[in-house]
Amino acid sequence: MRDRIIFALQLLFTLIVAAFLAVPAALSIAAGVTVNYFRGIQSGVTLQWVAQVLDLYAGTIMASIAIALGTLLVTLVVGVPAAYALYVRGGRLARLVEEIITLPVAIPGLALALGLLLSYGGFGNFRRSWLFILAGHVIFTMPFMVRSVMAIFASIDVKSLDEGAASLGAAPWRRFVDVIVPNAAPGILAGSLMVVTLSLGEFNLTWMLHTPLTKTLPVGLADSYASMRLEVASAYTLIFFVMIIPLLVAMQWIGERGSAK
């Protein structure tokens, strides 16, 4: 009996916590498709707000997707070989490098953005281009790619696979392509999902780095929260959810598959 009461209380508590997280999200989804949020859902369901958002902010959505994919490309090309090098080399230098590239996670985005502005603010063309935001996103997401790939290296005994391929005559580059990368695929995939998700949602850095011509989705969101009616802001948020939730589901699925093994 006492156990049942404890169970019920804990369940109730957990449900309240879940409600705290889920209710606002649900409200925002509802508001995004309601004719008039103030009058409630009985005022009718509509896609006009979504259409209005697409009309006003399509550019920011495309920009975010492009930057996320660009960031992914750079973190793959730069991060995967680096993760391999750091893992096989090991030792103090590797730990130091890992520590340094992980710093952007610990340091607030504001500080990094400020540093970038102070260093490159004078280079007008770069400052005004998408590449400026891309650079910030690359620095911010790189540790997630590198660590995710390094973690998989640790779990598959990549050193002896490497030596195995070497014993069969494969040169370093060939081993990397034939053996290392294919076997790191789960880690690369997990890292990629993380990088894209983070880049799509990045605000702290991007807000400081953006110009009126280089606005991303979160920047647009902040803009709409400040200046648009609630329904538009909600519809915009809804679009963001639609973009981000598949990534989250995929990440969770990979995580579960990984831990089930």
């Binding site: 680096a82 990094l112 102070l118 910030g136 620095i139």
Partner: peptide, 17 residues
């Protein structure tokens, strides 16, 4: 393998910091 990371980190993190 390490070189690109070093370049990117130096240019867009260490230098700004």
């Amino acid at each position: 393998c390490l070189l690109p990371l070093a370049a990117v980190t130096a240019a867009f993190f260490l230098l700004p910091m």
